[in-house]
Amino acid sequence: MTVTKTRTARSTWRPRLVAVVAVAVVNALVALAGPLIGADMVVTSPGQEPAPIDWPAFAIFSAGFALLGWAALLLVQRVLGADRGRLVWTIVAVLITVLMFLPPLAVSASTATAIVLELSHLVVAAIVIPVFWRTAGD
């Protein structure tokens, strides 16, 4: 007797939704903890006035980019199939994570603030990539 395991839409959306919420919450906490390590949470883009970055922005942008990643995964799996789609999505997600280390270096910010910004990118990658990869198989 052979037992086959099928993945339903329900079994994939719940962990992905939890991952989206988790990155929003964890990055909000990272932003709130920033001042504890001396981060003033102010950045200055070239040619612009200094702008504070508050914790809701961390939560909103983290969740937004996680949702974009989810949509991209669904699209690439539809076009390339489950296994190839997962592989391509994972490679692109890792490359985007690496590239996301550049923008905080292009603005003027305290070292502690830059560390918080970089850490926020790692949080998204560390939560979203494994969860989406695991739920995208087969």
Rank of each mutant, 00 (worst) to 15 (best):
V42K: 14
L73A: 07
T6S: 05
V92N: 03
A19I: 08
T4W: 12
R78A: 08
L80C: 02
A71Y: 13
A39L: 08
R7I: 15
R10H: 11
A9W: 15
P35F: 14
W133T: 12
R10Q: 13
L95A: 15
G34K: 09
T8H: 15
T4D: 11
A31W: 01
M1V: 15
P56T: 05
V26Q: 01
M1I: 15
I115L: 15
T90M: 10
V123W: 09
L73M: 08
F61G: 01
N27H: 07
I127H: 08
P103H: 13
A66L: 00
V18R: 09
P35R: 14
L17E: 05
A93K: 10
W89S: 03
G69V: 11
P35D: 11
F58P: 06
T90P: 00
P104L: 13
A22R: 06
G34S: 12
V42E: 06
D138Y: 12
R14G: 06
V116L: 07
V107I: 13
V92K: 07
A31V: 02
V20L: 07
L87I: 13
I115S: 06
M41T: 11
V25A: 10
V23N: 01
S108D: 15
L119R: 03
V98N: 09
A72W: 15
V123Q: 06
R14N: 01
V123D: 02
R78W: 12
R86G: 04
F61E: 01
P46V: 14
L29P: 00
A112T: 10
A66H: 02
L117Q: 10
T8R: 15
V21M: 03
A93I: 10
I129N: 07
T4P: 09
E49W: 04
W55G: 00
A31T: 01
V18K: 00
T113I: 13
H121Q: 14
V21G: 01
D54W: 06
F132K: 04
L80P: 08
S11Y: 13
G85D: 02
D83E: 10
I96H: 12
Q48W: 04
R78Q: 09
G69K: 08
V116F: 04
L117N: 03
L29Y: 07
L67E: 08
V124W: 03
V128Y: 04
F58M: 00
P15E: 08
L68H: 11
A28P: 04
T8F: 13
P50N: 08
L95P: 12
P15Y: 07
P103T: 12
V3S: 10
H121G: 05
W13E: 11
E49T: 04
P56S: 01
V123A: 05
M41V: 14
S120W: 04
R16L: 05
T97I: 11
K5S: 06
L32A: 09
P35Y: 07
S108V: 14
W55C: 02
R10N: 09
L122R: 03
L74G: 13
A66W: 05
W55F: 10
I37H: 08
G81P: 08
S11M: 12
P104R: 08
V116D: 01
A136P: 11
L102I: 15
M1T: 14
M41R: 06
A106I: 13
S110M: 06
V30W: 03
R7P: 09
M1Q: 09
A126H: 02
Q77D: 02
